[in-house]
Amino acid sequence: MIRKVVILSMLLLILILFMLTIEDININTSARDYLFENGFRETGSNNLVTAIYLDYRLYDSIYEAGILLVTVSGIIFMSKKDDDVL
């Protein structure tokens, strides 16, 4: 019971601190404004998320696909028996 009360009060404290800090931050919106105005014209994509991960930041996306390949090969390597290795 005491543990639950402590955890709840800590979560409430975190929530209040987050709300206080968000009010203070002066957000710079220049990148968002640039994408909103030029994203469709430069990449031809209505979905701005696709415009970012397939055109502006394709380097990041390719390595994200590479991480999945490494993960799959690692899982197969750990699950195979000794006699048959790919």
Binding site: R41, L58, L68
Partner: peptide
């Protein structure tokens, strides 16, 4: 034109989709 630029997006989305699907099926 925008219509030609979409060829690149569709092709890359297609290959990424195949890659992720086969990887998750293997896991």
């Amino acid at each position: 034109s925008i219509v030609y630029k979409r060829i690149f997006l569709i092709a890359l989305n297609f290959f990424i989709g195949i890659k992720v699907a086969t990887g998750l099926i293997t896991i």
